[in-house]
């Protein structure tokens, strides 16, 4: 990541309330081109909601989200334009069950971007090959394992050539042995310079992939920093406690 990389996404003081409950409290953030930002925090702290606010799956009460210098316009066509540029992958994959793997990949490019069928399929096949799923192109989602589904979901988002990719706990529903195959795909995307915002509970992976770490608790950004400082020298008590909850000490051993 070069120092003069331009900013892609700017979040200005966004506040989100569900009825009376304050979920996000004046959260601000800038993401530069090619940067990988990893967000961690306890369950229910608002980190998934934060991602969902960025592409307006949740409405916000205050503040604004600026993408490529333009404030996201909450009309139907304005949203659809913005969402083209923001790819998102969900915890529950959400492949379309009535379409084959290939059709899942080509649907949005063909309908939204009006890409020709042949062109879309060519690109889809290339991406499938890259994640090792070329042989599954004509299968239906129910015939795939969780890890395979999630890999398809990731390249489905890539098919739209997004400027930024949001990954919302994409390994949380997977069996442990499938986590690796999905995270490897994400690591390779980071290596080729994709801009990403990632919510995850996989701390080792976070440390490996992140350019910048963010800790959200109680709807606010409590701490942020480079991965090494973040994990080895946390500044706040809350982050220290949170990180501690991921380590185990063996029984009977006192340190």
């Amino acid at each position: 990541m070069s120092a003069e990389a331009k900013e892609i996404l700017t979040v200005k003081e966004i506040t989100k309330r569900f009825d009376d409950i304050q979920v996000l409290d004046r959260v601000s953030l800038q993401v530069k081109s090619g940067e990988v930002v990893v967000i961690v925090g306890p369950s229910g702290c608002g980190k998934s909601t934060f991602l969902r606010c960025l592409n307006a799956l949740e409405d916000i009460q205050e503040g604004e989200v600026i993408l490529d210098g333009e404030v996201i316009n909450p009309t139907n066509s304005g949203l659809s334009k913005a969402r083209e540029k923001i790819g998102m992958v969900f915890q529950s994959y959400e492949l379309f069950p009535h379409k084959t793997v290939l059709q899942n990949l080509t649907l949005a490019p063909m309908k939204v971007k009006k890409v020709g069928k042949k062109e879309a399929e060519e690109e889809a096949l290339k991406l499938l090959d890259r994640v090792g799923l070329l042989s599954k192109k004509d299968n239906y989602p129910r015939q795939l394992s969780g890890g395979q589904k999630q890999r398809v979901a990731i390249i489905r988002a890539l098919m739209m050539h997004p400027e930024i990719l949001l990954l919302d706990e994409i390994t949380a529903a997977l069996d442990p042995e499938m986590v690796r195959e999905v995270l490897d795909v994400v690591l390779s995307l980071a290596a080729e310079g994709r801009t990403m915002m990632i919510v995850t509970h996989e701390m080792q992976f976070a440390r490996a992939v992140a350019d910048r770490m963010i800790f959200i608790d109680g709807g606010r950004i409590v701490e942020e920093g480079a991965p090494d400082d973040f994990f080895d020298r946390p500044k706040t008590d809350r982050l220290r406690k949170f990180l501690n909850s991921f380590s185990y000490e063996s029984c009977g051993q006192t340190t």
Partner: peptide
């Protein structure tokens, strides 16, 4: 709802 959301996230109109 998540199916609808994932389609919206791909940039499709309602």
């Amino acid at each position: 709802l998540a199916q609808t959301e994932s389609a919206l996230a791909l940039g499709m109109k309602k």
